[in-house]
Each structure stands twice: as C-alpha cells, then as structure tokens.
C-alpha cells in the first residue's frame, strides 16, 4: 500500500515537473528572444553610428593628407582607427584658376552589413613656401550604398547620384538667394509641422540662424 502511494506521488511530481518545464521553457525562450531583438537593434544602431564615424575619420584623414602637401592620386585601404577600418581615395579632377589642385575626396567604411561612403570636393592650394597647405572642402555627400570608392565605375555612379543632388542644391541656393529674409523666414517657420515633435521648440531659433546665414548676393 505504501509502495503504491509512493509511486503515485512520484508520478504526480514527474507530471508537475514536465508541466512546469513545458510552460517555463517557452516563456523563457520568448523572453530571451525579446531581449535579443532589442539587443540586436541596439547593436545595429551602434554599428551604423560606428560606420559613419569611421568614414568621417577617413575623410578627416584625407584633409590632413592634403594639408600636409601630399599631392596626386592616393588610394588607401584598410586604414585602422581603433578596431575599425576605413578606406580613403583622393582623386585629382582638375585645376583651379590659381593652379590649385581639385580633388574628389572619397572615404568609406564597412562594418558587417553596414556601408557608409562620403564624397566631397577639395581644393588644395600650392604652398608658398611650405606647408601647411590651404585646403577648402565643400559639398559633402554621403550614401549607405555599398560603393567601392577605388573603382572607377562605382565612383562614376556616385558622381552621377551626387550630381542629381547637386542640381537640387543649386535650386535651393537659387531660392535662398532670391527670397527676401522675411519671406525666407516665414516659409521656413511654416515647415515646423513637418518636423519631429522634439525639434519643434528649437525651430524658431534655428530659423533665425538660417535666415542670418542666408545667401544674399
């Protein structure tokens, strides 16, 4: 009789354990998945930011090279900054009216599946008599497309994509130039509705600054 009771208890215990395991394990799995997706998202943002900052470091390195009077075509790949690597390409495109060298400055970085490439124009003047050299950079343009900045075909594609954006920028410059300060200010202020709510309180001050910087030729 006692033996039978003991077996019954053991059976109940086994069923309870199995039941608990059957409930707890999926719950734990679900929770772990939720945690993983959050973590994954955080890592994704982190990697995105890291890719961008690494590419910007590459771009700054390009400016430093030009300021140091390094001239002509330069292509550097796998340049480490911390644990991450960037590529840098400086392509001469022509000459300015003071015999200054004009370049396309291209910097890119890739971390896992994230790409970031920066393309800008740089003017490198001639040193008299010695460096540092005056370097003017402008019209920065960036993309997350996986372009290889040391291949002519890819650079041509970037050049065309950037050209389309530059045409829009030209239109913006024309508008900026022709609009009166009050017209410009009121039209910019009207756009606050299109902004994220966090930015709205700061928008009037930003508009004030933009209006004071406006092209007025």
């Amino acid at each position: 009789m006692n033996i039978r009771k003991r077996e019954d208890r053991q059976g109940i215990a086994i069923v309870m354990v199995i039941g608990l395991v059957a409930i707890i394990v999926p719950v734990l799995y679900l929770l772990s998945q939720l945690g993983t997706s959050q973590t994954k998202l955080a890592f994704k943002y982190h990697e995105n930011l890291l890719t961008e900052t690494t590419a910007f470091s590459g771009s700054n390195a390009g400016v430093s090279r030009l300021r140091g009077n390094l001239r002509g075509y330069q292509s550097l790949s796998n340049q480490l900054i911390g644990d991450e690597a960037y590529s840098l390409t400086l392509r001469p495109t022509g000459k300015g009216f003071f015999e200054q060298d004009l370049y396309f400055m291209l910097a890119s970085s890739k971390i896992k599946n994230h790409h970031y490439a920066i393309m800008a124009e740089a003017e490198q003047f001639n040193p008299q008599p010695s460096p540092p050299v005056l370097v003017i950079t402008r019209d920065y343009w960036n993309t997350v497309e996986p372009y290889e900045i040391d291949q002519a075909a890819d650079v041509l594609s970037m050049q065309n994509d950037r050209g389309v954006d530059l045409l829009r920028l030209d239109e913006t410059r024309e508008y900026e130039k022709n609009a009166t300060p009050s017209q410009y200010s009121s039209e910019m202020s009207a756009k606050s509705g299109m902004l994220p709510s966090e930015l709205v309180p700061d928008w009037p001050e930003i508009v004030g600054n933009l209006t004071s910087e406006k092209l007025s030729m």
């Binding site: 495109t93 022509g94 009216f97 050049q159 950037r162 530059l166």
Partner: peptide
C-alpha cells in the same frame, strides 16, 4: 555662378574649370 554662366561647371562632372 560665373562658372555656370561660362559653362565651366556641370554638377555631375568632376570640376576642372581652368582646364576647361
């Protein structure tokens, strides 16, 4: 604007104003 007026600049082409 001068470059644009003189056709020494096209946005989708590398800049080379003195060369052009």
């Amino acid at each position: 604007e001068m470059l644009r007026e003189d056709k020494l600049y096209r946005p989708n082409r590398p800049k080379d104003p003195a060369g052009w």
